[in-house]
Amino acid sequence: MTALRPLVQVEGLTKTFLSRGAVGGRVQTTKAVSNVSFAIGRSENLALVGESGSGKTTTGRLLLRLLDATSGMVRFDGTDIAALSRSALRPFRRRMQIVFQDPYSSLNPYLRVGDAVEEGLIIHGIGNAGQRRDRVAELFELVGLRAHQAERFPHEFSGGQRQRIGIARALAVNPEFIVADEPVSALDVSVQAQILNLLEELRRKLGLAMLFIAHDLAVVRYVATHVGVMYLGHIVEMATADRLFEATRHPYTEALLSAAPRLELGHGAERIVLSGDIPSPIDPPSGCPFRTRCRHARTECADAPMTLEAVGPDQVTACIRYREIYS
């Protein structure tokens, strides 16, 4: 994805959860993320999109070591952080941060928002009390709020303002990499564009690398440099944003694109409605995980192992029939 050494590099990332079933107490295996690989360069924004349950949030948490991987490698600036001890990992915590999905539950209701933003500075021993106070004021102005609002409590802000506070908190320790976990899905439509524009402006201004998690392809079209499409723990297609929207090469991506609101719908554009629900990761389908809902599925889709194939220099797909479907 980038000619230079990427800031974040993921290879063969897999996360399996073990749970005990309600009937008989049998141990069940849930593979939430399966053999995921990608790279994010400095100042790049990779978007992961897919339905709920596709493994996007789990992938983001694995990158930050909020969850430990079952197997695979997560390399940050050349260091495999998946193998680091807690003490060795601590310096990397400052370099990578997260913006959570829900701006309501992610802030302590009993803590002034300025104190919430300052917490990271205190934990990492950055500055004295006066310097931290100045930094908080600077961050509030940076995200479009007023410095004096730092003295208020979360209930005094709207959802969009709370998400701005969450962004300020993530930026407090000057990270190089941000995971934005569906940062606009809990917001009113009228506010979503403001937060998207703010994140993109900050990414460009501060040179941030970003993993942007979303379930709506329309949301990421104008902010992502690259897009990875996930289904049942697998990446089924990845490309530059321009390439993906112009020439998708996977039926699942095609269905997601058709679901995005567009002015031309009703004038010849096809709306693809997927039948059924996403299968259980406890008992996934053989072969292509999407085949049980794919209108192009054939017998060979159940037999062939799922692998990514290069379509061009900037695009890979897991569909073994893409040549027949999109020729």
Rank of each mutant, 00 (worst) to 15 (best):
M96P: 04
P91M: 06
R93G: 10
I81S: 12
S85L: 05
S87P: 00
V99H: 13
L84M: 13
S87F: 00
F92S: 09
M73P: 00
R94M: 10
D80F: 04
A82F: 04
L89D: 04
A82T: 15
I81G: 10
I81H: 10
S85C: 08
F76E: 02
G72F: 05
R95V: 07
R86G: 06
G72S: 03
A83E: 15
M73Y: 00
I98S: 02
F76L: 04
G78D: 01
M96R: 06
R75C: 04
Q97F: 08
L89C: 09
S71I: 01
A82P: 07
I98M: 15
F92A: 05
I98K: 01
A82V: 14
A83M: 12
D77G: 06
R94K: 15
I81M: 11
G78K: 09
Q97W: 08
F92N: 07
A88I: 04
T79L: 03
R75D: 01
G78H: 05
R93H: 14
R90T: 09
P91F: 10
G72M: 04
A82K: 11
R93K: 14
V74Y: 00
I98C: 01
R93L: 09
R90W: 12
G72N: 00
M96G: 10
V74L: 09
L89I: 05
F92W: 15
A88H: 14
D77I: 03
R90F: 12
P91Y: 10
I98H: 01
V74H: 03
M96K: 06
L89K: 08
S87M: 13
L89R: 06
A83N: 12
R75S: 08
A88M: 11
M96Q: 11
V74C: 02
I98V: 14
R94A: 14
G78N: 11
S87D: 15
R90M: 14
R95M: 13
I81C: 12
R86C: 02
D80M: 03
S85Y: 02
M73G: 00
D80H: 07
D80Y: 02
V99N: 12
P91L: 10
F100S: 11
I81L: 13
V74G: 00
R90Y: 11
F100D: 08
V99P: 14
L84I: 09
I98A: 03
G78L: 08
A88F: 01
M73K: 10
R95I: 04
L84Q: 08
R90E: 11
Q97T: 09
L89F: 14
D80E: 10
I81Q: 12
A82R: 14
P91W: 06
L84A: 08
R86H: 07
G72W: 06
V99M: 07
I81R: 10
M96S: 08
F100H: 09
F100V: 04
F100M: 13
A83W: 00
I81K: 11
F92M: 09
Q97S: 06
S85M: 11
V99T: 11
S71N: 04
V99A: 12
F100E: 11
M73N: 00
R75L: 00
I81A: 08
R95A: 15
T79A: 05
I81T: 13
Q97C: 12
T79N: 05
F92C: 05
R86M: 09
S71G: 05
F100C: 06
M73S: 14
R86L: 11
R86E: 14
G78W: 05
G78M: 10
L84V: 07
A88C: 12
P91I: 11
L89W: 10
R86Y: 01
R93P: 03
S71D: 07
G72R: 04
R95H: 13
